[in-house]
Nucleic acid binder design. Sequence first.
DNA 1: GGTCTAATGTATGTTATCGCACATACGAGC
DNA 2: GCTCGTATGTGCGATAACATACATTAGACC
Lengths: 239, 239
Amino acid sequence: MPPTAHLKDNSLLAALPDAEWNRWLPQLERVEMPLGQVLYEAGDTLKYMYFPLTSIVSLLYVMENGASAEIAVVGKEGLVGVSLFMGGESTSSRAVVQSAGIGCRLKSKVMKSEFDRAGPVLHLLLRYTQALLTQMAQTAVCNRHHSLDQQLCRWLLLSLDRLDGNDLVMTQELIANMLGVRREGVTEAALQLQKEGLIRYARGHITVIDRDGLELRTCECYGVVKREYDRLLPAAIAE
Amino acid sequence: MPPTAHLKDNSLLAALPDAEWNRWLPQLERVEMPLGQVLYEAGDTLKYMYFPLTSIVSLLYVMENGASAEIAVVGKEGLVGVSLFMGGESTSSRAVVQSAGIGCRLKSKVMKSEFDRAGPVLHLLLRYTQALLTQMAQTAVCNRHHSLDQQLCRWLLLSLDRLDGNDLVMTQELIANMLGVRREGVTEAALQLQKEGLIRYARGHITVIDRDGLELRTCECYGVVKREYDRLLPAAIAE
DNA sequence: GGTCTAATGTATGTTATCGCACATACGAGC
DNA sequence: GCTCGTATGTGCGATAACATACATTAGACC
């Protein structure tokens, strides 16, 4: 995590044409995004649109009984709050900071007027939204068909792609909440991955040792999502 | 299924302002949508955008090993092919007619130029897309946490909302493919629902007897999706 | 009316994940 | 260096859905 993250570390901001960039710059407010921070609750009217720089945000649905499941994960390749320009103003999911870091935000009013100019910004944001849509769809598929092991691999890879480096600050408890499984299940799966030499971890810190190995072990879902992000947002994620 | 479905049976078409409606009308091509018809494959560049009138279309992902899972279901409340205006031109899912009927379609070129006028059409379509997004998210949640029984209830209700009447022409085998489970599992669950007097069925035909009972038995996912459609598209689905 | 196929019903053993209970161990802070 | 809370490891029995195999039946078509 670089101490001085640049706003253009966010791929969407980086992809803005000069005119838009110059117009946005004075409006972009840099913010700390500490672990666990809730950017919005299900049903909240969004006040800001967030662009993660070094943080990761989970979109998750919390059930009536308190159990949860992650719908999608957003990092420096994207933004949080698509419902602002999609027109709904709110969603039925919650946005939580899953990995602490820096981000920046734009007032919803500014965001909407920018979107309504109907220029390149609109098309960029919609392409991003389609990528997000693919991620959600694939989450549904993965939840249905794949083993906890594979899902953990997918999740690690998706998270890794949205950060710099090979380290995740993340307890197994937290991962379990995201995946919507028991913590013990994550322990078992992580143990196995460690035995196989793919990852190493200790008390809330995970290091990926063999990224290629993880990619071999994960299900097709990771690749489908990755390729779709690359296709729709050529500049994004590519490190 | 009325023999002469009107184009405005589709809620999105019905919600069009007069100017747009008059402009679209000559371009809208009425089409039969037989069971099993594939509107597009994963990766296909879309040639048309489809508006179901009396048919239901499933968006589903087909895995490398042939297993499948439904991502979302579209009927007279919506349209098939959001990737056309979202900018991706294609998706990683397949669209299949799940219940035969009538629909109409618009050439993708026409559709895109209509969308790019950036008027009320744009906002209508984006609100619809957000509703679709909610459905996908909730499918992911449901796949993770709920029992086959509850998922079957949810699926029956969602399908019913997108048709007229209380009948579905649908084998258990087909339902199993949509839900991404074994056919035997659907048999068991359906048997149970029949015992409880909620549905009656025979050889590819299901009748819902006690709709309220189904709603009591399903998981919260159905309600979440339903309310979101109602909120985002007030005119839609309401019968 | 008889045949044949597709749809539905049933049985058996297997597996992954669950829920719960608890054991261990690291490391921050005194 | 000790303590204590948090993180991780482990061991059950319970359960839902799995794979497979096969039985039954309804209706379409001759």
